[in-house]
Amino acid sequence: MANDPRPNEWPLWEVFIRAKHGLSHRHAGSVHAPDGDIALRHARDTYTRRMEGVSIWVIRSSDIVASDPGAAGPTFEPAESKVYRHPTFYIVPDHIKHI
């Protein structure tokens, strides 16, 4: 990578594992690898030594775009102030069923 601060080091990859079919992939940790194929192998050896998964995704850490924890307040504030997005906001008499 041309703009890599440490060009002689294997870059970092994030590892996501599906524990079993029917569940989504979940972040497990990270590995160093020169390319995706080797990242997958290292992820298998590092994070699935005890049947922890049936599928692995790897992605270059530098390709992940993350929200800013310093801005967590304003970023997530609308969710807190809009209580009418939750069913419990609405009053329905007890004798009304199946709603």
């Binding site: 601060p5 970092l12 994030e14 972040h27 940790g29 990270s30 850490s61 530098s62 992940i64 993350a66």
Partner: peptide, 9 residues
């Protein structure tokens, strides 16, 4: 690890 590329910190 844990989605943290330190050059972005």
């Amino acid at each position: 690890m844990y989605t943290t590329e330190m050059s972005k910190n």
